[in-house]
Design a protein around this nucleic acid. Structure first.
Length: 445
RNA sequence: GGCGCUAUCGUCCAGGGGUUAGGACGUGAGAUUCUCAAUCUUAAAACACGGGUUCGAUUCCCGUUAGCGCUACCA
């Protein structure tokens, strides 16, 4: 049995589409499952749309998703693999050779300056690992342009030639190519070569069922990166679009997907993109993540939003992050939740202030301040603070919530947040006491 | 228009000739908690339609409809 060789062949257009990400993922999964080779090839034949510098977007997106490739151009400028070059813009000579071969054998001809391939008009069967055998009646199939008037080769030609030259054994690609595959098979036959196996995976659609295009909301991988999604979560979600572990589980480690993944069980129906489910999966990963693993993400988002600068006390930062992390699902929520740890000049939620900073609420803040002032720095811990709150509630005959809510708003400006006792501990005695006093003065009539 | 693919809760995914058609997200209700999140309990929610085949079809076959794709000197 020959070793599996699959390829992912994106165009450097400047954005990395979520559908491309899934195609790359399924290729990668199949390569890793079979112990085969995953090739990255750059399809940059369309000079008008592609820019060399955009190749970096492809590298970054693949690496962010954890999809490593065995052959192809590398981010450091080197090239791995013996079947290169891996950018189509550098393979012009190879394509010309194939076109000449067709020309000299009378299988192609010139027409208005372009070169056309004489498409056979007989029926053909396209065998597909996911969709099964599909028949195409080619009686009315027009001849295929394989080289433009300007001498550049078209997609169908380069795609087929590259797959042949790179010894690709399995072509795993979007279903939008299914109806094109008979053309590729015809070309391969004309070259006298053995075709790869094909597997067409269904498309990702918008929530409304339309095709997800570049401009659609949520179609760009960079968008997820910027919003603070975790790559493992995005990857996990993508695995579930068209594939299933069949045991009703949703969150599962990639190693397990690699072990179980196979082509015949890939679903044949298009899937709609469900951002709510991705959000939920991200929350699962977020909560399970260690502080160390999300710290870089948190630092970069908070810096980008001006919540912190370059000099942050790492111990204080981690303490704050660890109590906030339990409450949120997405990195993007961090700035709002963490501002109060690093800034005194926060706004008070006006609605909450109206509701909580009542005369009673403010009186409670005063009582709290007196009571908490009795604690020293060493005793300013969540456990001790909880005791104090409960004791004060007991002596004043109130529910502890009557103390908690004004206190939270006074120290953070927000009606929601992490566990209050932990919040107070992390903020520390000095900040807490001065903020309690400030709120008391500011909101007293 | 022609050709191709597809069709199970709103969405994603199981299932499969006889099932109370299962799980997850989301939604509703309740419990718990200092808020929120989480967690727990619970509810509503689907086999597109019409013909066959069969004792029996959501499952197999055909058709219809709908969605998507291809039909470029785009990829």
């Amino acid at each position: 049995m020959e070793s599996v060789r699959v390829r992912f062949a994106p165009s450097p257009t400047g954005m990395f589409h979520i559908g491309s990400a899934r195609t790359a993922l399924f290729n990668w999964l199949y390569a890793r499952h079979t112990g085969g080779t995953f090739i990255l090839r750059i399809e940059d034949t369309d000079a008008a749309r592609n820019k060399p510098e955009y190749v970096g977007v492809i590298f970054e997106s693949l690496r962010w998703l954890g999809l490593d490739w065995d052959e192809g151009p590398q981010p450091d400028g080197s090239v791995k693999g013996e079947k290169g070059p891996y950018s189509q813009s550098q393979r012009g000579e190879i394509y010309r050779r194939y076109v000449d071969k067709l020309l000299s054998e009378g299988k192609a001809y010139e027409s208005d300056g372009a070169i056309k391939f004489k498409t056979p008009k007989t029926p053909i069967t396209v065998p597909d690992l996911i969709c099964g055998d599909i028949q195409f009646d080619r009686t009315n199939e027009p001849d295929l342009v394989i080289q433009r008037k300007d001498g550049s080769p078209v997609f169908h030609l380069v795609n087929v030639v590259d797959d042949l030259e790179m010894d690709v054994t399995h072509v795993i690609r979007g279903e939008d190519h299914l109806s094109n595959t008979h053309k590729h098979l015809a070309l391969i036959e004309a070259f006298g070569a053995k075709p790869p196996r094909y597997a067409h995976i269904p498309l990702i659609l918008n929530p409304n069922g339309s095709k997800m295009s570049k401009r659609d909301e949520g179609s760009s991988i960079q968008g997820y990166l910027e919003q603070g999604y975790l790559p493992e979560a995005v990857r996990n979600y993508l695995c579930l679009l068209g594939w299933s572990p069949k045991d009703n589980r949703e969150v599962l480690p990639i190693e397990e997907v690699v072990a179980k993944f196979d082509l015949p069980q890939v679903n044949r129906a298009n899937a709609r993109f469900d951002i709510d489910k991705l959000f939920w999966i991200n929350g699962e990963y977020f909560r399970a993540a260690t502080i160390e693993s999300i710290e870089p993400l948190a630092l970069s988002i908070l810096r980008r939003h001006g919540v912190i600068g370059d000099d942050v006390d790492p111990v204080y930062f981690r303490a704050a992050l660890s109590i906030v992390k339990e409450k949120i699902k997405l990195g993007r929520e961090l700035p709002d939740w963490m501002r109060c740890f690093f800034h005194d000049d926060f706004e008070f939620d006006p609605e909450a202030a109206k509701k909580v900073f009542t005369p009673e609420g403010l009186a409670n803040i005063g009582k709290l301040r007196e009571r908490l002032a009795g604690l020293d720095d060493k005793n300013f811990t969540a456990a001790e603070l909880e005791k104090e709150f409960k004791a004060l509630a007991a002596v004043s005959g109130q529910k502890v919530g009557a103390l908690v809510h004004p206190a939270r708003l006074a120290v953070s400006g927000r009606p929601v947040g992490p566990s209050l006792y932990h919040l107070l501990e992390v903020l520390g005695r000095t900040r807490v006491l001065s903020r309690l006093e400030r709120a008391e003065k500011k909101f007293s009539p």
